[in-house]
């Protein structure tokens, strides 16, 4: 355990160095990546809001100083020009550390009972090996959820991202039954967490959520817009999740960067339930050359989280 922590820290250090350099490169190349964050005009409004600090603590900060550039509802219907986003998830490296889930929940101001990212313990058949399976929204290229929406509240953008406009959604939940991957979640009541974010609503920011509407993983378009990878990607200590632009043929997990086509062909990448014809934008690398035993995924889990896997074939067999 000790050793692993050290290793993690080393990894983190390494990641940091890379990131520092990347930021520098951005400046050298054109400055666009950095410039997008700069907001010199922000002024203090006197109104304080609670925010999460970098240490994961809550502290009060002036409201006027909290801005990530947030685009309007109209703009959020347009994708980033010339982009087509793709995610690759390396099942060989996942050990259900759940950092992706937690970072996603924090980033999107989600209540504890809503998760955009879920981690399944799948076992395809009795004799095959079980594996951890993180599942975001697949942002399908033939999204049934969008097809069935009666009011156009959920839509697909030119950059491939499927978003939900929580101010349009009527809460019929048809998209939830339409999605064969059980990706969408419903706000069954009003959650306090929805109030944390006081900014004008933008479907790109995905929050604050609204009672009686549907939400889901959104590929963090607000982060993408400023040249950052989604929360789950940067949070994963194992670098399981890669993200990038498929037209650019590149994906990164924040530490390593690969040619997408090469990665998929070398590692036999596939899409989950291809047979359904939904054409997902999330690819999986098969769970080979495992870095962790499946059991490790139960290691540091909260009892309550552990409980969630008690009905899986694996748990039934190993922890009777």
């Amino acid at each position: 355990m000790e050793e692993e922590t050290n290793k993690n820290q080393k990894n983190t250090r390494r990641q940091f160095l890379k990131k520092g350099l990347i930021a520098g490169a951005g400046v050298a190349v054109g400055g666009s990546l950095i410039a997008a964050y700069v907001d010199a005009t922000a002024t203090e409004t006197g109104e304080k809001v609670k925010v999460l600090t970098t240490d994961g603590e809550i502290m009060e900060v002036d409201k006027g100083l909290l801005k990530l550039p947030r685009v309007s509802r109209e703009e959020s219907h347009q994708g980033l020009p010339g982009r087509k986003f793709v995610m690759v998830i390396d099942l060989g490296k996942c050990k259900n550390a759940r950092k992706c889930v937690e970072a996603c929940q924090k980033g999107h101001h989600l209540p504890k009972s809503q998760e955009f990212m879920k981690v399944y313990l799948l076992q395809d058949s009795e004799k095959t090996s079980p594996y951890w399976f993180p599942k975001p929204c697949f942002h399908c290229d033939n999204p049934l959820c969008v097809s069935v929406c009666p009011v156009g509240a959920t839509y697909k953008r030119s950059d491939g991202i499927v978003l939900i406009d929580n101010e349009r959604c009527i809460g019929c939940k048809f998209c939830m039954t339409g999605c064969p991957y059980s990706t969408r979640v419903f706000a069954w009541k009003h959650y306090e967490e929805f109030e944390q974010d006081k900014e004008p609503y933008s479907p790109e920011a995905g929050s604050p959520g609204k009672e009686g509407t549907v939400s889901k993983c959104d590929f963090c378009p607000d982060l993408i817009r400023v040249g950052k990878v989604p929360y789950c990607v940067s949070a994963c200590p194992m670098g399981v999740i890669y993200f990038g632009d498929v037209d650019e043929d590149t994906v990164t997990n924040g530490t390593e960067t690969f040619q997408f086509s090469k990665l998929i062909s070398d590692r036999a990448g596939y899409r989950y339930l291809e047979v359904l014809g939904t054409r997902p934008c999330v690819y999986y690398l098969p769970p080979v050359e495992r870095q962790f035993e499946v059991d490790r995924g139960f290691g540091d889990l909260d009892e309550k989280i552990k409980e969630r896997y008690k009905d899986t074939p694996y748990s039934k067999k190993h922890n009777p």
């Binding site: 009011v151 009527i170 609204k210 009686g212």
Partner: peptide, 14 residues
């Protein structure tokens, strides 16, 4: 069954 009854007109509007 609809979560947002206040938005029912959207069914016609949009």
């Amino acid at each position: 069954c609809i979560g947002r009854l206040d938005r029912l007109p959207y069914l016609v509007l949009f």
